[in-house]
Design a binder for these strands. Structure first.
Lengths: 137, 137
DNA sequence: ATTAAAAATGCACTTTCGTTGCATTTGATA
DNA sequence: TATCAAATGCAACGAAAGTGCATTTTTAAT
């Protein structure tokens, strides 16, 4: 409880009640969540608030946004000490076409990529689509 | 002209006037295009027709759809003899955050990815975001 | 403690994109 | 030339992202 408040403050995000709840929700989820998922979990809160909370979290390095190819943005908590940097922090995401869930495979970092002359990489997104461990049995 | 008709027929796609035009448009573009781009180029045609043409092209291995992380689907002609298969055909895409264009780096195939036990890969999407060659000068 | 300022939240609304159903037209085939 | 299937055009819908503004809450200063 108090840890979360402290954590948010460290990240320069005001620890409002709503934000603490959203943080908790993200923390208990082991998969990436869409705005709609949070909306359903917090029926009382307005979508805009949730939307802006996620944006704030993203801007302050608390969550990373995941584009899993479904066209719907997903969000997941960043790892400890993550700066969302290529080579160091960025990891593989897996989207299951059966259960439709997206997971962070944080131990699978993104391989180094050689770009042609003149190209500058700022961000890399690697998504594998297929059948996840739960659904493949 | 006649080559295109033949090509489309080979791919089991009826070479209608509209489809030939769209094919030509894609062929002359060196970047991936969005539905909206084609819409603007062919003001006379209906969006639905363009949309369905792209779908038809995609289903018949003429174009591949690209998810570049902008949330807007892009399309580009497949390489010759492409079957859109992992390890063989799938390549890197680069999205420029300056000019907003997405290019196929077809010579950069997607590296082999080891997944955890139980995961089955069906498709892989690798997008690098940054500054492209044209914009970095 | 009170108040002023700033930030967060809620509400209404808009835009864009993807998508579908259905009527109409075009094109291939018998 | 008649017939049937495929392609096209039109209208509309739904989901999701995003914005402007009014209101409430929180912080900070007096």
């Amino acid at each position: 409880m108090n840890e979360i408040e402290k954590f948010l403050e460290d990240k320069k995000v005001r620890p409002t009640a709503m934000r603490i709840l959203i943080y908790k929700f993200l923390a208990q989820k082991e998969v990436a969540v869409a705005l709609t998922d949070i909306e359903n979990a917090f029926a009382k809160a307005d979508r805009t608030t949730l939307y802006r909370t996620l944006k704030t979290f993203e801007e302050n390095g608390i969550v990373h946004q995941i584009d899993d190819g479904t066209g719907i943005s997903k969000y997941a908590l960043c790892e400890k000490d993550c700066n969302c940097e290529i080579e160091q922090d960025l990891h593989l995401h897996f989207h299951c076409s059966n259960c439709n869930e997206t997971v962070c495979l944080t131990e699978h970092k993104i391989p180094h990529i050689n770009l042609p002359e003149g190209y500058v990489a700022e961000d890399v997104n690697l998504v594998v689509k297929g059948i996840c461990e739960k659904c493949s049995n």
